[in-house]
Design a protein around this nucleic acid. Structure first.
Lengths: 117, 117
DNA sequence: CTATTCCATTGACAAACGTCAGTCGAATCG
DNA sequence: CGATTCGACTGACGTTTGTCAATGGAATAG
């Protein structure tokens, strides 16, 4: 994932001399950065982060009706946040009759965790 | 950080019976979630994530003029992203004469890393 | 002093986001 | 059947975001 920047110690340069040569950034990097940023973005809201936190603490699946009273937001708004987490691939849902059960997808956060560590 | 949700197996309930009791969410949680989400949000853009990635690979400080050619964005836009990272406490800068050197603040990502792990 | 270089800030704009009230479909109870 | 419940979706709203062109301000070169 590295970009080999030459970290030349900056000294005074003559006027008209460019500061540094352009460095090509590998496209592979960009694809991974896009994936990582997408996950980070989905976690970039306090409510969504708490949702993931609650879901992660339960090995099993959690009913939406249990999540609603945890937050001071309307049910449609919570549903919207859950959809955003679903779109980011972080959680998934399973309907059983009238209820919907959410859970964190295994390995959904491993790439981001690995990058951070 | 846990919230003790009772994960009662859902079964059919009589009409008019509430699904679950409201659970109180500790305020301490919310403060930490706000901090974590702020950091995650700052990382929730591909360019900012790549910026942090580049800065992390260099133990020392990196001149802005070295960062500009890495991305297909204008210099003001890059400056804007750097400011967002500064505001989130992820990076900091140091001016030396005409140049500005950026670096990742130590421990800026430890809380998020710990939460993810 | 004047010209130049580096970087931040401003202003503007379209796009995306967080939120809610309202609604709807599906499933269940009576 | 009709009434009720769960959860998603729609439309609307104000706010935030990402981006650029233009500008400004500080420091250096000549």
């Amino acid at each position: 994932m590295a970009v080999d920047l030459e970290l030349a110690p900056k000294t005074k340069r003559a006027t008209g001399v460019r500061c540094c040569e352009p460095v090509v950034y590998p496209d592979v990097e960009r694809a991974q950065a896009a994936r990582l940023a997408e996950v980070a973005k989905a976690l970039g809201d306090p409510i969504r982060l708490q949702l993931v936190d609650v879901l992660r603490r339960h090995a099993g699946k959690v009913c939406v009706c249990e999540l609603v009273p945890l937050f001071d937001i309307s049910q449609p708004t919570l549903s919207h946040h859950l959809k955003r987490l679903r779109d980011a691939g972080i959680v998934d849902a399973e309907r059983q009759g009238l209820w919907a059960y959410y859970y964190v997808r295994p390995d959904a956060l491993t790439e981001l965790t690995a990058w951070l560590s």
